[in-house]
Write a protein that binds this DNA or RNA. Structure first.
Lengths: 230, 230
DNA sequence: CTTGACTTTCTTACATTGTAAGGTTACCTT
DNA sequence: AAGGTAACCTTACAATGTAAGAAAGTCAAG
């Protein structure tokens, strides 16, 4: 009553870990993770920097929570899905999530402490493969190849200095001109090829490699089944 | 004023970009890239921080040069090598180089400006594939999958909080104990499996995925050849 | 309402970082 | 020796993460 009717100075929504993390993600998405400072983050929440330290021990813990939140965004397979389309879908989802938060890959490398979202994620993937008949060790292999590929691909994709095909053509053109062509004939040829073929698509390239890997896994699984291994 | 005949026993080897870069790499290898500061780097060269700015416009240029130097360490295939063992060898070499300089992966992601070492490297790989009969586009696919895989794999490998099998067992044991097993049955099972199988080897895991990819590429190449595509 | 305990936020301060501006020394050529 | 340039240094500053502790807000019981 009294408190309610008090002067409406501020909506005084209290700071919570969740609000901090989502503000941090928003800020990192916009300005890049390098611009994510304690003061800036606090300001975006209408608060002073040191207030954040009541909810997080240090900046690193905030980064951990951000990574975990990103993982939680990835679509997980339903229980009865076929393993191959399920893996295809989740790889695609992982790629798109990581592209939305390009800072996440770099953070994951440097913050190995897995959170709940991460573990939930991994559990679902492993479960899908196992119930599709993958042995323990083949599951481990599958997990390793797929994730390595996706991380590596997105890491390169998001690090390159262009996003659209036109930008690619520009960059490629620039490289060609400033390069001693006779010294790097193959590289030049390659760049030229994509300079002339600006319909190059990261999405297609991604699927080529992914399907190559999934087909390989299917073969390994078939071999395993015919061996009776478990 | 006083005579300049001070203690001139210093061999006063002049600062060169090369010396700066190799000192920077050494420092990053030892203390981690986060501890690579201008002052620290200068001190390790017996010099003041601002002296570095005579040779490099800013810290970023030093980081670029470090990445390029790391790339130059990777073994390149000889011209007449079979493509498959050549790719296998260079992927292994790339992995070991990146493991020696774990900071390099993160830097590569954030510094897209390729240097001479990088281009030389790429040119050799492309040349090897092309002269093995790979079409332009299949070469691009091959390059993309292989590199994505290697980067992603090493990125995960070097980010994990253990190096040896014993440490793995320790970490796995710790995870098992502090985890609600019934909530993540598959994840727990997986961790337990490796807890009991401490002969797990990153090197082997790496080769499993790599060979899966190389076999897939061989199949694509065979299909291409029988199609007469170029 | 007052009191006091507890939670949440803020103030101040400091060590570290990258680097701009300009000064100082060392070395080479004439 | 003289002068010029290449190499290095001194000083200074703004921005960062965060330690220490003060202040404000919140709520239960007297």
């Amino acid at each position: 009553m009294a408190a309610r009717v008090k002067k409406d100075e501020s909506p005084r929504t209290p700071l919570t870990p969740e609000r901090v993390v989502s503000a941090a993600i928003e800020l990192a998405d916009e300005k890049g993770v390098a611009k994510l400072t304690m003061r800036g983050l606090a300001a975006s929440l209408g608060v002073e920097a040191m207030s954040l330290y009541y909810h997080f021990a240090n900046k690193g813990k905030i980064l951990d929570a951000m990574v975990d939140a990103v993982f939680a965004e990835v679509e997980l397979p339903a229980k009865d899905d076929e393993w191959k389309p399920a893996m295809r879908a989740r790889a695609g989802s992982l790629r798109s999530v990581l592209l939305d938060h390009t800072w996440a890959i770099a953070l994951m490398d440097s913050r190995p402490d897995p959170g709940l979202g991460t573990i939930t994620h991994h559990d679902a993937i492993i479960g899908c493969l196992r119930s599709a008949g993958f042995s323990m060790s083949l599951t481990a292999h599958a997990f390793s190849v797929i994730d390595s590929y996706v991380y590596g691909f997105v890491s390169q994709e998001s690090g390159l200095p262009f996003q659209s095909s036109e930008e690619l053509a520009d960059v490629a053109g620039g490289i060609i001109e400033s390069l001693p062509v006779e010294q790097f004939p193959h590289f030049s040829e390659m760049v030229a090829a994509y300079y002339l073929h600006p319909e190059y698509s990261f999405a297609e390239e991604f699927l080529v490699g992914l399907d190559l890997i999934l087909d390989g896994l299917e073969r390994l699984r078939a071999a395993e089944v015919s061996d009776g291994e478990s």
